[in-house]
Computed example of a mutant assay.
Amino acid sequence: MPELTLIVVLVIALALIFDFTNGFHDTANAMATPIATGAMKPKVAVMVAAVLNLIGAFLSTEVARTISGGMIKEGEDGILITPELIFAGLIGAIVWNLITWLRGLPSSSSHALFGGLIGATVIGVGFQAVDYDVVMAKVILPAIIAPIIVGVVAFIATRLAYAVTRREVGRPDGRGGFRYAQVFSSSLVALAHGTNDAQKTMGVITLTLIASGYQTVGTGPEFWVIASCALAIAIGTYTGGWRIIQTMGRGLTDVKPAQGFAAETSTAATILASSHLGFALSTTQVASGSVIGSGLGRRGSTVRWGMAGHIALGWVLTLPAAGIMGAFAAGLALLGPVGIVLDVIIGSIVVAGIYWWSRSSRVTHHHLLHDIDDAGHVVRITKTPRKPARRDRKKVAL
């Protein structure tokens, strides 16, 4: 029993570390567009997102129940997965999260988690332990359908926003107000993100407690699990995740306030609906789809399809890549305590290597402010130059 208690503590700690990486990896989902348009300062934006992620984590537990009692089948003696395998799956998810963060790719933390758990379960128990009907219905199909639907909604919303505020001769178009509306819409996305993504870690910890016999099958997360996961994702969100914010804010398309507002409201509505239904949706995929849809909806806007292709490739690779990493870690974990120690050592070396590599091309909130200033500079230099005053002309002549 002492060994079991130790592994449970290790899994809970690792799950909270994953929750932390999920926070800074997915901050861009809510705050990339208001930062890109200058509606919110970067540090203010991540502070607001952190607080609302914290609040959102307390609002629903449907997604947590999907993970803790849906994906992995139950056997005669309870759920088939063991804490050691959950530990291995989390290692795969964390490593893949950090790799995509290093590349600035808004991949799905959710799918990294699912891939890691499935890969570890297949190695440790077998293919029959995974409930593929649940995985298909509540993970894969939403991942395919949701970005398309939210993209269409964002396209229509952007068209409507620009049609309603169409410029008339001699009158302003009224689109400046969308810059302030973005504060509300981006905050709603952050709240929605807390209702969906924080729950995935709650589900993992609950799954561990059920597998270890500390909690009965079919029960949801306890309050201390909800509170700790909410705090971990909030702290992670506050650290920024500036690389992915830069990609989402300007890498896919140049975002204007009305366009950003349309994208954010479409994202929030989709995520909140999925949380209510218990779908473990990728908020990253939804946010990326809405940004692309809004880019197509604004006349004169250009979507950078090359970057979109890279992001889509990351989506496709996330499940299998995290699954392979989780399977490798599970193979070591099955060796016993020695294998767990090897997992910790190898995982720590890989994480340290990624962090060291990131230092050579560091991205901070100052880079985002520089991007906004550059955009404003472009606007300023296109204005008709002012003729120098007579006094200025005399100075020039001298």
Rank of each mutant, 00 (worst) to 15 (best):
T219Q: 11
W315E: 01
R171V: 15
V378R: 11
D131P: 00
E62T: 05
G23N: 10
V350H: 06
V350F: 04
N97D: 13
L160H: 08
A30F: 08
L160F: 14
A327H: 06
L102Y: 14
Q246K: 15
L281H: 10
G116P: 08
G115H: 15
P221E: 12
Q182C: 00
M325Y: 14
I91C: 05
G331Q: 09
S360I: 01
G213P: 00
T270K: 01
I340G: 01
I372F: 14
G124L: 03
S228Y: 07
W96F: 13
N29W: 08
T265N: 03
L160N: 12
I233T: 12
S108L: 07
I271S: 02
T283E: 10
S110I: 05
G104R: 01
A262E: 15
L14F: 14
W96E: 05
P142G: 01
V130I: 08
I118C: 06
S274N: 10
D133Y: 09
R166W: 06
W357A: 03
L117V: 09
L117C: 05
K387I: 08
L277Y: 13
A163T: 09
L59F: 11
P2Y: 12
R393P: 01
I140W: 12
P106G: 08
A327T: 02
G331N: 07
W315V: 00
D254T: 11
I205G: 08
H367R: 10
I210N: 02
T382H: 08
V189R: 08
I86E: 13
P388I: 14
I17G: 01
A329K: 10
Y355T: 05
L231K: 06
G236N: 06
S187G: 11
I346W: 10
A322V: 05
Q199C: 06
L272Q: 05
A263Q: 04
Q246H: 15
P2D: 10
L10I: 05
M202R: 09
I79G: 02
V291W: 02
G260W: 12
T253K: 02
I156M: 09
S185G: 00
V95C: 04
A28W: 02
S361F: 03
A287E: 11
A192K: 04
G176P: 05
G289I: 00
I245F: 10
V225Q: 04
